[in-house]
Simulated assay, not measured.
Amino acid sequence: MEGTGKIVELVQTVAVEYGLKVVAAIAILVVGRILAGCLKRLIQGMMDRRSVDPTITGFVTSLAYIGMMAFVVLAALGQLGIQTTSFIAILGAAGLAIGLAIGLALQGSLSNFAAGFLMIVFRPFKVGDFIEGAGVSGTVEKIEMFTTTLRTGDNKIIIVPNARLCNDNIVNYSARETRRVDLTVGAAYDADIVHVKRVLEEILQEDGRVLDDPAPLIAVGELADSSINFVVRAWVKSSDYWGVFFDVTEKVKLRFDQEGIGIPYPTRDIHVYEEKRA
């Protein structure tokens, strides 16, 4: 009975001692996470009031939050009596396979962080730009430490690692204030070329979104198999690109119908030969 009492007493002592440490560590994690979130919102509010570029704001707030959380985790481990240097040594001795896995993970994270830093410095795009890269396209919502978030035209969210964007071609459709709308319009071979060009010019002139400088271009681009193809090039503001593209395409069909200009479709002449048998 005496031995059992000592065991119970020992268990109670260990539970009290380490139980308090575990509770304290959990409290540090919870409070630290709340403080990290408050710090992130505070920094974002300060940068928003100073009208800092949202691209830089997202990156800095993400960096501050992750740095704060790393400090909180180290503090919680210290409360448990775990020395971080010893903890790292234990992880290093856990095995070659685990070490290689952690190394590869860190390598990917570091490359994403470096890529995010380079994007902030060289600014190939910013928040609000419509870009294409890494096999996807969309409007940039935010640039964080390791990832960039894009929103597609149908309102889907795509999260792309920064390293993939930096290692791929980036097409920024919003980098310039103006864009050129390129259309190819086919007309029948019996149509009057001068008449067709005049109708196309009137369509562009009637659209107030088409810019006068640079001037629109309308020219015969190709004598195709079944049509004369006209090249129509008009400069517009980047925000008006798709509106002008769709509206002009529709107006071409309506005006060609009114003017009696045929829009041909591929045709094929079939010659049938009758074979005479003796």
Rank of each mutant, 00 (worst) to 15 (best):
T178W: 07
A234Y: 02
V72W: 12
G243T: 06
N167Y: 04
M68N: 09
E132G: 14
V11G: 06
Q79A: 15
I170C: 00
V73M: 13
G5C: 02
Y189T: 13
L10V: 10
E201N: 03
K156N: 12
L63N: 10
A134Q: 11
I158M: 15
S86Y: 08
I218G: 00
F122N: 06
Q83N: 13
G103M: 13
R277S: 09
V171P: 00
E201V: 00
K276S: 12
I66L: 06
I28M: 07
K126I: 07
T178N: 11
V140D: 02
G208E: 15
Y273M: 08
E250N: 01
A175R: 15
V248W: 02
S137E: 15
L100V: 14
L74G: 14
A188Q: 14
E259R: 04
G32S: 09
K126H: 08
I90R: 13
S239A: 14
T55F: 01
D168A: 06
T249C: 04
G95H: 07
T61A: 10
S227R: 15
I43D: 00
F256L: 07
N167Q: 08
G262W: 08
F113T: 09
G243Q: 02
M1G: 03
V220C: 04
L217Y: 05
E132I: 05
V181H: 11
I7T: 06
F146A: 09
P124C: 02
T84L: 13
V16K: 09
K142S: 14
V60L: 14
Y189N: 13
G78M: 08
G45H: 00
G78D: 08
R233L: 10
D53W: 02
E17C: 05
A25H: 01
V220D: 02
F245T: 05
I28T: 11
K276W: 10
D240I: 07
T57Y: 01
V272S: 07
G133R: 04
E275P: 03
G3P: 00
L42E: 03
N169Y: 12
P214D: 01
V232C: 12
K237E: 04
A75K: 06
I66H: 01
E9P: 05
Y18E: 06
L254N: 07
E141W: 03
G45E: 02
T147I: 10
L74P: 04
W235D: 03
D240N: 12
S226Y: 15
I34Q: 14
L110R: 08
I131G: 12
K253V: 08
D154I: 14
G103A: 15
G208T: 12
F256C: 05
A25N: 04
C38I: 10
G58P: 07
A191F: 09
L20Y: 12
L200G: 01
I131N: 11
E206P: 03
G108S: 10
L217A: 04
V232I: 13
R164F: 10
K253G: 05
I90Q: 12
R164T: 11
G116Y: 01
G153S: 10
A24M: 06
A97W: 09
L204T: 03
I170K: 00
I34E: 14
G32H: 09
F130V: 15
D247M: 05
M145L: 03
A134H: 11
N155I: 04
G262Q: 13
L100Q: 05
E141D: 11
Y65G: 05
E141Y: 02
D53N: 14
I26G: 07
